[in-house]
């Protein structure tokens, strides 16, 4: 991972009546795509809101592009897409563009905005409420990109979209990241999207950051082991994260897949997907 950090969360804590986030320590390396995963209510949106200056943390420090998210000049260099927070749906894309031009001033590139609308096939004069969900997401992305941000912070940008639209949006992210100074932090439940584009994965579980690891390392590190209980007992302490029993035997999420295969040469241990990792961690804590 590159050394330079685009964003840093340092000991971030946030307490709500029925939920506590943190303390979270997370560094988003510049020039990468970081996927933030976790179950519903794990704290992903809370984390993104703190990072983008929507809400302050109770304790800890959030740093965005070398400054504070509370600083408007810093926020001008970031493009944000939230799943359900945007302009009123009675506005048209053209009016949203004019409003954003007034908000961002000289940073706003009206030609780039028109270009994105054109690329996404969006009619600028249609009201947002006349758009489909996919079109709304594309419009949100167009507004997030038209002021040439250095970083994109995206909350569930591909949720509820069909595979074709998701593919287009993921391509857009890969285009954006071609510039080495550009960074994306995106939360998503669709882990297959993150497997396609993310450089690293951060996993939030019940408000706690369980890990933030390079995606390829993660996929190599974790494995799904299928074996009998006797074999399982031969593994060193801490290597098995969680085991699920079924009629066909037991399935275990293991950490250190290569070592497991060395210790149990006859066992089947496939690489685990991000979904598998989440399911097994969730199952472990549910017990």
């Amino acid at each position: 991972m590159p050394d330079k950090a685009a964003a840093v969360l340092n000991g971030i804590k946030k307490q709500y009546k029925d939920f506590t986030l943190g303390p979270v320590d997370l560094t988003i390396p510049a020039g990468t795509i970081v996927g933030l995963v976790g179950e519903n209510g794990a704290g992903k949106t809370t984390t993104l809101k703190i990072l983008t200056g929507v809400n302050p943390p109770d304790s800890g420090r959030a740093e965005l592009l070398g400054g504070s998210p509370r600083d408007a000049a810093v926020r001008a260099r970031v493009g944000v897409v939230f799943e359900d927070a945007y302009f009123y749906e009675g506005m048209s894309a053209a009016r949203i563009g004019r409003s954003m031009a007034g908000i961002f001033g000289s940073r706003w590139d009206a030609k780039a905005y028109a270009g994105y609308l054109n690329r996404f096939g969006l009619d600028a004069n249609k009201k947002v409420k006349e758009y489909s969900r996919g079109m709304r997401m594309k419009l949100s992305l167009a507004t997030a990109l038209a002021h040439a941000p250095e970083m994109l912070v995206l909350d569930e940008p591909t949720a509820g979209l069909d595979p074709v639209v998701r593919g287009e949006i993921l391509d857009l992210f890969l285009d954006f990241i071609q510039d080495e100074n550009h960074t994306i932090l995106m939360s998503s439940h669709i882990t297959s999207d993150l497997e396609q584009v993310a450089d690293s994965i951060a996993y939030l579980h019940h408000g706690t950051l369980l890990f933030h690891e390079d995606k390829d390392t993660l996929m190599q590190e974790y494995g799904l082991l299928r074996c009998g209980e006797a074999d399982l007992r031969r593994l060193p302490e801490g290597m098995a994260v969680h085991t699920r029993q079924s009629a066909f035997g037991c399935e275990t999420l293991v950490k250190g897949r290569t070592e497991v295969l060395r210790l149990l040469p006859g066992a089947v241990c496939d690489p685990a997907s991000i979904d598998d990792i989440m399911r097994f961690y969730s199952g472990r804590d549910g017990q």
Binding site: K49, T52, G53, V54, A72, A73, R75, A76, V78, V80, F82, D84, A85, Y86, F87, Y88, E89, G90, I103, F104, V153
Partner: peptide, 18 residues
């Protein structure tokens, strides 16, 4: 009310305005 309905304020706080 329109702002509340569209959750505008959460979005607005990410923009370069005070």
């Amino acid at each position: 009310s329109f702002d509340e309905m569209s959750h505008w304020d959460a979005y607005a706080r990410t923009l370069p305005v005070s």
